[in-house]
Design a protein around this nucleic acid. Structure first.
Lengths: 147, 147
DNA sequence: CCTTAAATGAAAACTGATTCTGTTTATCAC
DNA sequence: GTGATAAACAGAATCAGTTTTCATTTAAGG
């Protein structure tokens, strides 16, 4: 699995440093999204000394390469998570447990057309992010983590 | 027109202070989105001394009340614009000239269903924002403002 | 008017993110 | 292996946008 990430980084012309590999492993082990600081704290357990700027730099590189995706939390912070299947870009994020779920759109194709079509200008990018409480957190809504 | 905003603020249980009215007038006069600092600069021409925190506080209140909407620019800053028609929530934003255009979705209804339906959890909010270059900026792409 | 809760200005603090500089390290050619 | 080199790194300083605090002012309703 680690070697897997190695190949991905090679493809992006990014050096396969132990820290980058570790970042991808951390994100892979997580079913949800993590803040840069979350990642930093976990990495310090492995590496001891480690700069927070390194985490930001690598997140930027990995995000630019499309290996990881990011989420804008209602609290305005940015969080990151690993992209698992590249053809699927839309997610439902739970703002309580921070889990990221694929959205099984009945009309994913129509959605794409709606987003990119019917516009006179040129679409460069779009953000579609659905925030809510996942089914699990909904059950125990009273005890959900503050957000 | 100013009286119009007065009523809106009353409805939100926000005091109709001259500064809040002015903010709404500034946003109304603009066809595009403005940064908090943009708004602050324009207000200082009217009011002389004026604190930037006041702008932030009022933006928060107006945004909470749904009178204004906001945009996350690719440069990661937040910008605000006036909501003109409440039933229509999706916009195309030009990241060059900062104009906000309504999107005339052929399938706005299907889009809504796709966003809110088919999810086991509870949808609390969503962000759908389409970034690009408007038709005008597309023509003069070489001279478009940096973003 | 007059009272009161809300809004404001000013200064300071916070926070996430970035820049800078010198050092270390992964990669690749040999 | 070994050395060269371009990238990555740590640590400190810095930055910009935003928020807090607190004393003062002001709008709204009686």
């Amino acid at each position: 699995m680690g070697q897997d990430f190695y190949q991905i980084l090679r493809g992006l012309r990014l050096k396969a440093t132990p820290k980058r590999i570790a970042m991808l492993e951390i994100l892979d082990a997580e079913r949800g999204y993590l803040s840069p600081e979350d990642i930093w704290k976990r990495m310090r357990k492995q590496f001891g000394r480690l700069g927070l700027p390194t985490v930001y730099r690598n997140l930027e590189g990995l995000y630019g390469g499309g290996v990881i995706s990011r989420v804008i939390h209602p609290n305005r912070q940015l969080y990151y998570y690993l992209c698992r299947n590249e053809e699927h870009h839309h997610h439902f994020i739970c703002i309580s447990c921070r889990r990221v779920e694929d959205v099984n759109f009945c009309a994913e194709k129509e959605l794409q057309d709606a987003v990119t079509g019917g516009i006179k200008g040129k679409v460069l990018s779009h953000i579609l992010q659905i925030n809510g409480l996942c089914f699990t957190c909904l059950q125990k809504e009273g005890t959900a983590r503050a957000y």
